[in-house]
């Protein structure tokens, strides 16, 4: 493969004419990818809407079993992480590599807290026999709710199918994001980024904002109403 010609920046791929063209292409590709992500989730939002319209009382009863405080904390944590990403980008634009690394690490920390709280929520439900769909088998007491009261509500397990699938796929996206941020931290330490070239951080930031926005829809739909 051809090496970049003399005088061209190292990040410029040989099949692009200029850094601008390369950056525009990357950004457009990322936006298209985000559209596909939205469409992926839209299928699940449609399923949620249809079944909520059909069984509103079931959804209300079931959402009592979700802890809005934990969900709320997670919302704040994710919002905070969106801020740290954006601030990190601003730091590298000003040439502050240390500031970038600190903000990326803070983002990773927020993501880890989010997943930790998810773990607490999931494991508590599993102990009370709250599984999706056909495996739903409520036992004992869950956060002051006598699970026996929930055993016979028709279609109640379906709410938890939707809950686990939607938050599960969202959680998977958070994990992917954590992987990418780790890679970005390593590259930052190597000095790959500069005010002239920080495309991967900007694009990952876009992805992370989308993950955040999807949670902002999931939280009220599942926990609050």
């Amino acid at each position: 493969m051809a090496q970049p010609a003399a005088g061209q920046p190292a990040h410029l791929k040989h099949y692009f004419v200029s850094s601008d063209q390369q950056f525009d292409a990357a950004k457009m590709g990322m936006w298209l990818f985000l559209i596909t992500e939205i469409l992926l989730f839209s299928g699940m939002f449609v399923a949620y809407t249809v079944y909520r319209v059909w069984h509103p009382e079931v959804f209300e009863a079931a959402s009592d079993l979700l802890d809005w405080k934990l969900g709320g904390i997670n919302t704040l944590v994710l919002l905070g992480s969106s801020f740290t990403v954006a601030y990190g980008i601003q730091r590298i634009q000003r040439g502050d590599r240390k500031g970038l690394i600190i903000n990326l690490l803070l983002t990773l920390l927020c993501a880890a807290i989010f997943m930790g709280i998810k773990y607490v929520e999931y494991s508590g439900k599993f102990e009370a026999g709250i599984f999706p769909g056909g495996n739903f088998a409520p036992v004992g007491d869950y956060h002051g709710h006598d699970m026996a009261n929930y055993a016979d509500i028709l279609f109640l397990p379906q709410f938890f199918s939707i809950y686990f699938v939607m938050t599960g796929i969202h959680g998977f996206h958070v994990l992917v994001g954590m992987g990418v941020f780790t890679w970005l931290v390593i590259r930052s330490f190597k000095g790959d980024f500069s005010p002239e070239y920080y495309t991967p951080i900007e694009l990952t930031g876009l992805y992370w904002h989308l993950v955040d926005i999807i949670w902002i829809f999931l939280f009220p739909l599942l926990y609050l109403i």
């Binding site: 079931v58 056909g134 379906q158």
Partner: peptide
């Protein structure tokens, strides 16, 4: 997992 999104027996 038998999530039942499309299964009438589970409300799907």
């Amino acid at each position: 997992l038998g999530i039942g999104i499309f299964d009438p027996a589970l409300g799907g």
